[in-house]
């Protein structure tokens, strides 16, 4: 029983971080119908930036999120302006290929700057845990999970309580009408792309404390993130949060009760199953261009 509760707690802590990163990916898709394959690469970039603050200035990587996030936001804004905007009317597959290229370039750039060795961030509390009953709660995971929730809430407030948020939701629902009421959809999209990547960057700073990383780690992340947003329903942030929790649980339970070797298969199996049974995901709406009646 303790083992089961332990498993449950660990998976929820991981799930919170997945939720943060995946919500960025699904937000981008919701507004601009772009599947950002480079999302995982920007997560790793966030981790490397956090590492640099920690290593050079002794800044706590989790506190460093305050600096990391705006940097990645700016980068995202710039990337949208330079690369994504010119092809916003192209077929979706073009943007998939573009962002795939972006992922490779980002991986290469990180390799040149930080090297291709495995890197870890080790603040003082990294090997400590809170112990509740027989269950251990690793401090890094608890702080990281809490921070992820805070960032998620901030994101949610931006989307629901601000003018910007209303503009974003209008642009997502109906770009043409949004233009009519004076919303510059491309400007909104640039902000959204920045926000989405910033979520990945913040998530990267957190996961960098939890697990070692190297530039090539992004494949693993993008596979997971895609599985999460597909399960949650492309474009649905609530769906992404719920499915991130489910996903964290499925992964951990598979690792503990079946075999860690098969845990890596979980994302791919989920993608297959979801697209086969319910292509619109848990909370997504069916996109005209997304699913075909057969």
């Amino acid at each position: 029983m303790t083992e089961f509760i332990q498993t449950l707690v660990l998976s929820l802590l991981v799930g919170g971080i997945y939720a943060l990163v995946a919500s960025g990916l699904t937000l981008i898709f919701g507004v601009m119908r772009v599947i950002n394959i480079a999302h995982g690469a920007f997560l790793i970039l966030g981790a490397f930036i956090a590492y640099t603050w920690w290593n050079q200035l002794g800044l706590d990587p989790l506190v460093g999120v305050v600096i990391t996030t705006p940097i990645v936001f700016g980068l995202g804004w710039l990337i949208y302006r330079l690369l994504v905007r010119p092809i916003r009317h192209a077929p979706m597959s073009s943007t998939v290929l573009l962002t795939f290229g972006l992922a490779l370039v980002t991986e290469g750039v990180m390799g040149v700057i930080w090297g291709n060795d495995s890197t870890s961030i080790n603040p003082s509390y990294v090997d400590q845990s809170f112990h509740v009953g027989g269950v251990f709660l690793p401090k890094a995971q608890v702080y990281g999970g809490a921070l992820a929730v805070v960032v998620l809430v901030v994101l949610w407030l931006i989307l629901t309580k601000t003018w910007l948020g209303r503009a974003i939701r209008a642009a997502a629902a109906n770009p043409a009408s949004a233009e009519l009421v004076g919303i510059k959809v491309t400007s909104v999209a640039a902000v959204v792309f920045g926000l989405g990547l910033a979520a990945a960057g913040a998530g990267g700073a957190i996961t960098g404390v939890l697990y070692p990383f190297l530039p090539g780690s992004h494949y693993l992340w993008i596979a997971r993130l895609l599985a999460i947003v597909v399960l949650g329903g492309l474009g649905s942030i609530e769906g992404a949060v719920i499915s991130a929790m489910i996903f964290g649980l499925a992964e951990t339970v598979t690792a503990v009760y079946i075999s860690p070797a098969w845990a890596t298969a979980v994302p791919y199996a989920i993608v297959f199953a979801v697209l086969l049974i319910r292509p619109q995901g848990l909370l997504g709406t069916r996109l005209r261009d997304d699913a075909v009646a057969t």
Partner: peptide, 26 residues
């Protein structure tokens, strides 16, 4: 399997397929 997917869903399914085959081979 892929009949129901189109556009980005299809791209995702092909990537998932590749990795799934790899995990099975492992």
């Amino acid at each position: 399997v892929a009949l129901r997917a189109r556009g980005p869903s299809f791209v995702i399914i092909t990537v998932a397929f590749l990795f799934l085959v790899q995990v099975i081979a492992i």
